[in-house]
């Protein structure tokens, strides 16, 4: 497992001091006019600029691997609503309107309701440093801030009929230049099985690197499911629907042969486009890391799939 090798990195290092140093990096990079710096930093949800999130607790579920530098995490994004190039979101996501913002939680539950983003930010926040493995065979380590998805779902009291959870991403054609092309069936829809959604590792993230989530990373609130390929973690969500049937998801609709509903990180299930045996940790040159089943979270999540043929349910 990837976790085994100890590093000299401490969880306490990742917030205040790192943020401080990172700003210096931005300034330097911007001055150098590099690709990573030229766009002038990150588009934060708030016009007031970089904003710290307060009262963030550490979590034993965090990995001790060194987080990928913020400049990479915020400048290399798949967020097709803002363009299909990974440098597009940081340039265009600034136009996303993140206030007012509500998330409707509905469907198979006793107390459906709509939450304002301000209410959601009051959930007890934790930092979760997670590995992120993209289906495109690259990976990062991201210090998310958020709360357990299950904590929100329990508030609406799911009924026994709730077998799946469907997430819908915002659709703002005026802001999202990418939705002009029918690249995917907009709005972006993703989904999880109920037990996956209730797993303590599945979170709703509202922050990154100690601060409010940048738009290009899915502001103001997004799903993070660290044992699945990145596209399963829907960004900028506006609706969570508890469903009896398996939702039809955006990538599955686009290419069912390539993107299954489960899409658990699995080196043994070959993808028609990319070998999933190894991965490239951003910003390294060589794809030298062996990909681990469930992205290294097997100890926690493997039992969710006991007895399932993971090649069939890929």
């Amino acid at each position: 497992m990837l976790i085994k090798r100890p590093t000299d990195y401490l969880p306490s290092e990742i917030t205040s001091e790192t943020v401080y140093r990172r700003r210096r990096e931005f300034v330097k990079a911007a001055a150098a006019g590099t690709i990573l710096g030229a766009t002038g930093g990150t588009a934060r949800a708030d016009d007031s600029g970089l904003r710290q999130l307060a009262n963030v607790a550490a979590s034993p579920l965090s990995t001790f691997e060194k987080p990928t530098a913020d400049k990479y995490v915020t400048h290399y994004n798949n967020y097709y609503e803002f363009g299909t190039d990974k440098s597009d979101p940081v340039q265009h996501a600034g136009r996303l309107k993140t206030r007012p913002w509500t998330v409707a939680v509905e469907g198979e539950c006793r107390k459906p309701r709509t939450f304002a983003i301000e209410e959601l930010l009051k959930f007890p926040l934790q930092e979760r440093v997670y590995r992120l493995r993209c289906v495109e065979a690259w990976s990062m380590v991201v210090p998310w801030i958020g709360f357990e998805l299950g904590a929100l779902l329990r508030q609406v009291e799911p009924t026994g009929n709730a077998k799946f959870v469907e997430f819908t991403t915002a659709y703002q054609p005026d802001a999202m230049i990418g939705v002009r092309l029918p690249v995917l069936d907009w709005p972006y829809v993703e989904g999880l099985r109920m037990d996956e959604a209730m797993h303590p590792l599945a979170i709703l993230a509202v922050g990154l690197y100690g601060e409010v989530l940048p738009n290009q990373n899915g502001a103001p609130i997004r799903v993070v499911v660290p044992w699945k390929y990145g596209f399963k973690s829907a960004k900028s969500i506006v609706r969570i629907r508890l469903a009896g049937k398996q939702p039809s998801t955006a990538w599955e609709k686009a290419s069912p042969r390539e993107y299954g509903f489960y899409s658990n990180v699995n080196p043994n299930v070959d993808h028609p486009r990319w070998s999933q045996q190894r991965e490239r940790r951003i910003p390294e040159f060589f794809a030298r890391r062996d990909t681990v089943i469930f992205n290294g979270y097997g100890d926690q999540v493997a039992q969710l799939y006991a007895g399932m043929d993971l090649k069939k349910y890929f």
């Binding site: 990573l36 490239r280 951003i282």
Partner: peptide, 14 residues
């Protein structure tokens, strides 16, 4: 690639 890979973005190899 040799002197300033950041100029090539977060995934210089790609």
């Amino acid at each position: 690639a040799i002197w300033f890979p950041d100029a090539l973005g977060a995934n210089p190899a790609e």
